[in-house]
Design a protein around this nucleic acid. Structure first.
Length: 260
DNA sequence: AGTACCACCTGACGGC
DNA sequence: TGCCGTCAGGTGGTAC
């Protein structure tokens, strides 16, 4: 699930369960998820410290340590974090386990292991080095317009390009375009300033709504496309059958009638 | 610069 | 029941 709204919820959850607790050790069940980082360095860097602050940029969660250092979490397609106390409650597909001195644990679980945990300098440094665009949840209209300047190609691809704006993935790109009534294959260089303004405001609204509803598809407004991205489902607005096409190699659901 | 593929992984599902 | 292809909310690399 991990797009911006999911990761923001992970961040808030992380704040509630993992902040200001002394770290005893870190167990790496599968080092495939470690990026530029070894199990040994992870332990050396974290032992005796505590996470003291988090921030999110796009789909990345950053947790800084009280005596220096910062850990980056990316959740790939199937990653999540889960706190628990009893070893028997450890979630399936736990790849890395943070053990706190009070006996609690935080699991980083990721079935497909496409996520990453990495020791980094800090959020700004990481964003700069990896060319991440501004975060989609907080971007202003002028910055949004600036980000789209000179861009070409299909609107969905641009929206999902983390170097343009960070945080939108396949599912929320579809939702935003549906709510704003743009066809996913609309060329961005043909959009007017008014179109961009509309896209920006709808994007902000969809993301904030999804964050508030804990990125739970079953709790999203009934006017949303997300719970209906399946064969045979209808548009909540006009009731015509939803269509699916490939855009940038990704399955795209939309309403052929509402999105021109 | 934009697009189309491929790769990295595991599991669920539908068809035969 | 079992096998097989396809697909799944991400990203990075390749070649055109």
């Amino acid at each position: 699930m991990p797009e911006l709204p999911d990761v923001e919820n992970f961040r808030q959850y992380f704040d509630n369960v993992a902040l200001h607790k002394a770290i005893e050790s870190v167990d790496v069940e599968n080092n495939y998820v470690l990026k530029n980082t070894s199990a040994k360095s992870l332990n050396q860097e974290l032992e005796g410290k505590a996470f003291d602050e988090t921030c999110r940029h796009g789909k990345n969660l950053f947790a800084s340590l009280d005596k220096g250092g910062c850990l980056r979490f990316h959740f790939g397609m199937t990653g999540s974090v889960q706190a628990y106390a009893e070893p028997s409650d450890q979630p399936k597909y736990t790849r890395v386990r943070f053990n706190f001195r009070d006996g609690d644990h935080l699991a980083y679980a990721d079935l497909r292991m496409l996520g990453e945990i990495e020791l980094v300098q800090g959020p700004q440094d990481y964003a700069r080095k990896h060319g991440l665009g501004p975060d989609a949840a907080g971007i202003s209209l002028p910055d949004f317009q600036h980000a789209f300047e000179g861009k070409r190609g299909m609107i969905k691809s641009v929206l999902m390009d983390q170097a343009v704006i960070a945080g939108i993935g396949n599912v929320y790109a579809d939702e935003i375009l549906y709510q704003a009534r743009f066809h996913p294959q609309q060329q961005v260089d043909e959009l007017s300033q008014g179109d961009l303004k509309k896209l920006h405001s709808v994007m902000r609204k969809v993301l904030s709504t999804a964050v508030e509803r804990h990125a739970d598809p079953s709790k999203l407004p009934s006017s949303y496309l997300i719970p209906r991205r399946r064969k045979g489902q209808s548009c909540p607005r006009c009731k015509s059958k939803l269509g699916s096409i490939k855009v940038g190699g990704r399955t795209t659901w939309f309403c052929p009638s509402c999105q021109k």
